[in-house]
Structures are given as structure tokens and as C-alpha cells.
Design a protein around this nucleic acid. Sequence first.
DNA 1: AACTTAAAATTGGTCGACCAAATAAATTCT
DNA 2: AGAATTTATTTGGTCGACCAATTTTAAGTT
Lengths: 236, 236
Amino acid sequence: MDHVLENLKEVVATKPTDIIIQQVKDLLMSGQLKPGDKLPPERKLSEKFGVGRTHVREAIRKLEFYGILKTRPQSGTYVASIGISALESLIADVLKIDGYSFLSLVETREVLELSSVFHACERHNEEDIRLLENSLNDYIVKAEKHVTAVEEDLMFHLTIADLGKNKVLKSMLLIIIPDIIASYNVFNVCQSSTNKALEEHRILYDQIKKRDAEAAVQTMKEHLKGVMTFARSIIQ
Amino acid sequence: MDHVLENLKEVVATKPTDIIIQQVKDLLMSGQLKPGDKLPPERKLSEKFGVGRTHVREAIRKLEFYGILKTRPQSGTYVASIGISALESLIADVLKIDGYSFLSLVETREVLELSSVFHACERHNEEDIRLLENSLNDYIVKAEKHVTAVEEDLMFHLTIADLGKNKVLKSMLLIIIPDIIASYNVFNVCQSSTNKALEEHRILYDQIKKRDAEAAVQTMKEHLKGVMTFARSIIQ
DNA sequence: AACTTAAAATTGGTCGACCAAATAAATTCT
DNA sequence: AGAATTTATTTGGTCGACCAATTTTAAGTT
């Protein structure tokens, strides 16, 4: 196995919360903790790990978000009933999550947006179209002033996600969009071709309205092409 | 019993953290808070909202996860430099996030897995293939015992995501997989066709090894087809 | 002995107080 | 006066103590 890598990660885990998560993982690996088990009380854990309850609670929250633990008030915290090896791997990955590459972000965004616009074509209603139109107009007004309209751009795309009626897809977009914006600023990915983008938004609106899913997906692909090729060109 | 008390309890019932998030949103809407601004200190917020600092901190953490806020130790918490309207919409969505439908989860999983396996074909190396082979063998051993091998199944898919070298895609899968497993249990989606699934895993392994991306994507689509049609059949 | 009820202990939830780092203000020195 | 240094204050980080719901144990009743 990759013991070397494991030790390396252990050194990296310098934040108290991550240390606790590592310890919980150790409890699982040593067999002291099994899927479905009740976790020791927060007090015991904080005592055993020599740290305040705050950090224990934060670690539990983080693992709860990834579905690894489940807390029942005034009762206890329980390990998910998934296989032990899967659990260990899941926790290992939670610890590694940090510093996404720009390419990873943009690739994921493309996948989510393509699916999003596809479902939008199939599932929107009349009210939705009005919302999308408003969103488009907001963007047009701002863009025609030659002001960078990143937020209106973003809003238009999120509105499309709304039309897709898939909350998970939208949540995922919500999670990565701030990171993408941050990367945009770092790499200075300016809206060089605002006119083109504006036109593409208009086309997207029409195609979604006509429920032409295939065409809309293609337009979206083209719309994101610039950023994609730029992301691929960066050495990371 | 006492109806008045019950009603009072119900009105107050919403989670304190979400109330804080709502209040922060109000601060933005009223213009008291603008993008890039420094948030009032946690103490002031807890005092103003009539609640302990714990809840304020938890709310900030949640908004931080979605990239809406950014905390600098011993300095302050700052609002992201995104457009005000986008920010408001983002927060509104964070509050809405709850109770994903099974269809949404499976749809998203399909999209992520298809992209994942595609990149796996393009980016894997010899070491990766060995890991995938181990993962496949673990699954085969368990599956041939006619035991439900959900965790090994899951691990195989996560290994494919590893080969894809896209941390964001993998993180997204990590986030939704526990929810999917939970839904599997609720709807009793058993591995009825284990033999078929086993064979598909073998085929996937071969196609990834051969770097036949197109075929692998198709196999993965077929592999997830059963769950997809089942998900679509559920009225929610 | 079996069931019901009441008291005690356990446990996650919440809060206010203290800590150390970062910042702002005051002081000192040139 | 201006810059450097020191002091004071602000601020997020951390911790231990208390709260209320839950669970466990004990006591009481039939």
C-alpha cells in the first residue's frame, strides 16, 4: 500500500479539525469503530484527543456534510452504514480536498451546465421563460454599458439551472462558481469577447424557449469553449 | 394540551443558523452590507440577532463553504466581491438547499460518472490501472459470494474518478454518494442483476485500459440505466 | 415477576469568558 | 514633524460550564 503517501498527508493535516478527522479514521481502521456504531461522546473524544469540544464538533459537522456521520440530538453521533473500506476511503478524500485546479473547476462546470441546459429545455414552463427573459435583459443592460457583467452572466446561468428543476445540479454549480470567479480574477480571464457572449446568451434563450435541447447544449458548449481552451493551456 | 405554547414553538422552530443567514441576506438587501465589505464582528452580530456567537459562527462557516464569505483570523469576515444581486440569489439558494429528490441525485450522478470515466480513459497511467484492477477484484470476490457489494461497487466507481484526475468531479461524487445510498435503502433498490453489473464492471475496466473513451462512456450509461429508469418511475 | 412511573445520568446544544493574533492608537525617539 | 516602537484595543479562535432532551437506571405498584 501507499504508506509513504499516508504519512505525508498526516503531516499536512495541521488544522485541529483535520487531525480529529484523521483520528476518527484511525478508529475505523483499528476496528474500534464500525459502520453503524455510535461514536464515543464528544466529551470523551475531546479528552482522548487532547482538544476542546469545539474542534470535535467541527470535525463531526464536516463528516456529516459528506454523509459519513449522522448526529441525533441528545442521543449520539452514528457512523454511516456503508462498508468499512468505502468509509475509510471517503474520509481520506475529505482530508485531501483542498486547492482545486482551474481546469478541474471549468471541466466540472461544463458538465454541470450542459446537463443543466438540457433539462431546462425539457422541463421549463411559461413562468420560467419569463424569469429567464428577465435574467437575460439584466445581463444585456449591463453588458451594453461595456461594464464587466460577471454577476449577471452568472445569474443567467443559474436561472437556466433553475429551469432544469434539478436541485442537486444547481447546488453543485453554487459550490464551484465562487471558486471559478476567484480563479477568473487570478488568471485575469476578462470578458474579452463580451459581444459574442451576449449573442450566445440570446441564442441560448431562444433555443431553451423552443425546447431545442440538442442545439442549446451545443451552444452552451461553444459558450464555454473559450474558458475551456484557456484552462487547458495553463500549466499547473 | 396548551395550543398556544405549541403554536409559539412552531413559529420559533426554524434553525438559528438559517435565521442568521437570512439576516445577513437582509443586511445585503438593505444596502447596509456590500460586496467586499467587512462583516460586523461576530459579537456584534450575535448581540444584534439576540443569539450566541456559536450560531453566528456556524452560519459564517456555511456561507464560507459556498464562497459567499471569507474569514481572515483575528481580522474579520469579508463578503465576496461578487455582484450584489448574485450574492442575494446565492444566499437564497443556500437556505433552500434541503431534501434532494432521488431523481436529481441519480441524474447528477450519471453526469458526473460519465465525465469521470471519459477523463479516466484519457488520463490514467500504468499504476492507475493496477489500482483499478485491485478495486475490480475486490468487487468480484464479494459479488461472487452473492453478498450485496454496494461498498465495493462504490469504491470501483470512485477509483474511476481517481483515474480521471479531476478532484472537483470526485468531490462532487463524494458529496452525493451517501445520499444516493440512503435513497437506495429507502426505495429498496437492491442489486437485483448482480451478474450483469459484475460483467459491466469488467467491461468498463477493459475499455478504460484500452483508452476507448467513447465505448466506456456508453457502457457506464448502460450500467446506470436501470437506476435511472427506476428513478424516473417514482412519483415525487 | 412484570409493568409503570419517577429519578439519575448521559449527551448533544448553547452560551459567556478567556486566549492569541492582528490591527489601531499612543508614545517615544530622531 | 515624521518614523519607529510600544501599548491598547479589536477580533476570530478556543475552551469549560451550563441547558434541555434523551436514555438509562432505580423505585414503586399491582
